[in-house]
Write a protein that binds this DNA or RNA. Structure first.
Lengths: 221, 221, 221, 221
DNA sequence: CATGAATGAGAATTCATTCAT
DNA sequence: AATGAATGAATTCTCATTCAT
């Protein structure tokens, strides 16, 4: 029990003096990454509960036991993997939003980024969707929510802020912005999923345009 | 081999002369129902993969072995439970839609029905959401999609038809109705889920109104 | 526990005054018989361990629970069934032997009876063979040996006596008659089994003749 | 899926360069052997159907799960164990037969080998006997016959050839050699079993002599 | 008496986790 | 550090036995 701290935990101390990352640390970082990426692929294929350590290890091309050098246990791996997965997408979204100034531009940019992200990474949507519906024991679910909830919430908050700004600017009408945000996010996700499950999805821009236009101007003539 | 069929299967012969359901059949039907309802609650709590036969049996207040008198195996139980669960909601939706004549009325009715259904049946949304993201082995996923996909698809199709009608009637503008349907369904689901996870959700009508108005007239001023 | 004695046990008191077998007793006797016959067929098909109460009940056309009215438990049924099964064959053998006076005649008669019995009752050989090799827990095996061993032993003893007589009469040479008996019985059984597994076994008399001649005169020229 | 194969299967590649069996392979081979030997002992004690994985594991001094590292499932273990068991005996028999030139010598050698084998390996006869009477579901029985039948058949065939040769050489009289082979094999087995069940069997050579003499010269004076 | 639904102990199998090499 | 064989708790499923109807 004495040396029970994993590399992963050791590595969380990122405030070390610059330039002191030794070769070992780089290797560790690399291992952590490749294990998480393998886990992402397997979870995407099978779902969170059905993904086994063996399959993840095989996918990563390492031995089962090795995973335990970098992650405390299965829950730890899954949890950190989820965190990483959302971070990636949300970072892209943050960049996309920054680049735009109008609400419509930002909305279009968000839609385009999501569609693009999942078009390139078809299996990942499954993992993404399970963020909202954690499986397993009550404890696992609580842990999951505690760890991944914030990420999702941050995403919702960002869109909420964008909506509030737009309302303040008089770009769009007033409504509960948090609720609107959730509605938009999941509506967009639905299209993402639709595209992912289609053999030959229509051009990305068609979907971007349809959603943007519906959201901006409504269906009524 | 001959009587290896479960009651559940035997009971599928619904074409019997009216009024001839013997007491045994009623009891069987009741057992099947209570097992499925227990399964719904457990799946809702834990997710499809993490729900165990033991927990389902305990939830139903019966012995493990009893489940096997009514369902062939775990997959059979889960599958039939899902089918039942969706049927319930979709039947309510069909009724709600029938009662309205305008597009806006129907949309409002759909939203209201869903929100009401899940407000009363909070745990079930989890089960509903896993309809689109089946977990487990590739085979289980295929089976699940084959059995539950049609139900979801029917739901999508119904809304697609409503949208097409409305476009034909000139009530709303033209767009790909199938895509629009998916977008709306999942956007609405998102609000459902939001409400389910909230301690004190706002009045149902507020959400109904917000969604209807956004979808009909858009956000732009 | 008070009325734990089964009919089967009650029925073992066969020394009742003649003519007092009430109708109920006849029915009981009939039930016992038909259950045992069903058990014989199932054990013959599946082997002793793999034969289930359900399958036996189905084969007998009654409910599982009914078996327990006539037999204490599974072991009791199997045991009594075995006893009955051997009795049938051994009774036929006794009759066949009685009818002959020379050793060669008796030997021929034994072989012919066995071949005939199993030709008509193909599946039963399997049950017969498991008499010598009881399966299951040590206790079951002990019980089985205690109950069925005597029957087999009686069979061996009878042939031993026949051999001893023949040796005394100077019909055949001297050798350990008990060992010889076992050798002959199983050699004959082997041909029985051979025939049972053949699509189109040769005429019964050919096998009878071959065995008789080999045993009487040996293979050497 | 790729490495779902058990070691046992992997090890079937016996065509490796000589002397390259690594230590791991030796260890694996050893494990496979000791599991199979444990299985042989348990099956010998309890019979094929009644032998449980737990008891086999305990007998081998390992954990239940370990068996599954070397054998796919219960059927696989039982099947491979049977194959191994018969191979051992039949190899000894082949050697014993080779060493002799006359029919009587070969016959004596076969009898002596069998008696010796089972005298040393008392429990195994039970396993051997179940070769001819596989238990369990129809499928298991079919599988068993497919896998073990050939071994038994080979044994019968070998003796059939020996008999045919002897007939051709004029050593013994003419008769259906295949039938004779079966008769002799099972007659000999019977003595084997007799010895196994006796507290103090007579000297081996007495039984060898009795059988040889009976078979060669018959019982008649 | 007969039934067969219900039970739960027990068997097979899986897989997260540990630990000797 | 890395490995992967070994473990055993947990899970699914079976079936002998009981008991209310």
């Amino acid at each position: 029990m004495s040396n029970d701290r994993t590399f992963s935990e050791l590595n969380e101390r990122k405030d070390m003096a610059i330039q002191t990352r030794s070769k070992e640390e780089v290797v560790q970082e690399y291992r952590i990454q490749s294990i998480q990426e393998a886990a992402m692929r397997v979870i995407a294929r099978k779902g969170m509960s059905a993904a086994t350590m063996k399959e993840i290890a095989d996918e990563a091309g390492i031995a089962k036991g090795t995973i335990y050098l970098y992650f405390h246990d299965r829950d730890d791996l899954v949890e950190k993997t989820f965190e990483r997965a959302i971070s990636q997408l949300h970072d892209s979204l943050a960049v996309a939003i920054e680049a735009e100034t109008t609400f419509e531009g930002r909305l279009r940019s968000i839609i385009r980024t999501k569609l693009g992200y999942f078009d390139q990474n078809r299996e990942f949507f499954r993992l993404y969707s399970s963020l909202r519906f954690p499986e397993g024991s009550a404890q696992q679910q609580r842990r999951h929510r505690r760890n991944c909830g914030p990420q999702y919430q941050e995403h919702v908050d960002r869109l909420t802020r964008i909506l509030t700004d737009a309302m303040d600017q008089g770009e769009i009408g007033r409504a509960d912005p948090a609720r609107l945000a959730v509605f938009l996010i999941e509506g967009i996700n639905a299209i993402v999923i639709q595209r992912v499950t289609e053999e030959a999805p229509p051009p990305q821009e068609d979907d971007v345009e349809m959603i943007t236009s519906t959201v901006m101007h409504g269906l009524a003539l």
